[in-house]
């Protein structure tokens, strides 16, 4: 039943996308908009194919940055959440600080990071860490803290240690929240990598984007935009697959 319904939903959205592409193509083919300002979908596909090797090469760099940054973001977020759950003073001290880091716009500190750490990978990775560790830390912390009191008491009565309670109750209980935030974080990671590359770098989709913009190749510009969102979607899907593998009990629900 459920599969059928979601299949029906995607049918609607695919139709909508095709319709938009069709209108777009017609507008361009009819010459209503100058091709310099808005390339037609066909032009974009052509640009994508002709520049494919270059796109792949740059995408590789962006993806590496995103993965390293996200990986570290997860580790740091996890450690923060664990410590803040375990030690109340740390929670009181750091929670507001973590919220504060989120009010700083990424774009605003990116140039500073480039200034301090150069054009290599470091500033990009740092920026991605800043962008991703917050949702991870906050969601995991919420997950840990919302663990059922009665269950914890029961395990304590069986002689469970603090670590055993974390391992058997808090951690698995926080997994749904963790994966929900991970889905957001992967797209943050990609977007942040691109933004960081705009401000300076030797490679990556952001750098590619800046170059094609400067040469007014808007067809390539669109091609790279689509590639970025395709990558984000793919990674979000990947998170879903990993989630299902890590949480086998949800399959039977």
């Amino acid at each position: 039943m459920k599969a059928k319904k979601s299949g029906g939903n995607s049918l609607f959205s695919v139709t909508a996308i095709l319709l938009i592409l069709l209108v777009w193509q017609i507008v361009c083919s009819a010459g209503l908009v100058s091709p310099y300002l808005l390339p037609s979908p066909v032009d974009v596909v052509k640009a994508f194919i002709s520049d494919l090797p270059l796109l792949i090469q740059n995408a590789r760099i962006t993806l590496i940055e995103a993965f390293v940054g996200l990986g570290l973001g997860i580790v740091i977020g996890f450690v923060f959440a664990m410590m803040m759950d375990r030690f109340e003073p740390l929670y009181k001290a750091f929670y507001p600080l973590i919220v504060l880091t989120q009010t700083i716009p990424t774009v605003a500190i990116a140039p500073l990071l480039v200034l301090w750490f150069g054009y290599e990978m470091t500033p990009k990775v740092l920026l991605i860490i800043l962008a991703t560790f917050f949702p991870i830390a906050v969601s995991m912390l919420d997950g840990f803290r919302s663990a059922d009191r009665d269950t914890i008491r029961l395990l304590e009565s069986m002689g469970a240690s603090g670590w055993q309670i974390f391992r058997h109750v808090k951690f698995p209980g926080a997994l749904p929240q963790f994966f929900a935030s991970l889905r957001i974080s992967v797209s943050y990671a990609i977007v942040t990598a691109v933004v960081a590359e705009w401000l300076g770098g030797f490679g990556g989709l952001g750098v590619y984007m800046t170059r094609v913009r400067k040469s007014f190749s808007f067809d390539k510009m669109f091609a790279v935009i689509f590639l970025i969102s395709a990558l984000s979607l793919l990674l979000m899907k990947l998170v879903e697959v990993i989630q299902k593998a890590c949480m086998p009990w949800t399959k039977t629900q």
Binding site: D148, D150, T151, L154, E156, S157, M158, G159, H168, V169, P172
Partner: peptide, 14 residues
Amino acid sequence: SGHVSYMLQKDLLL
């Protein structure tokens, strides 16, 4: 704690 086991109205199965 750790000497008697208990069971409640809620099963508290993980």
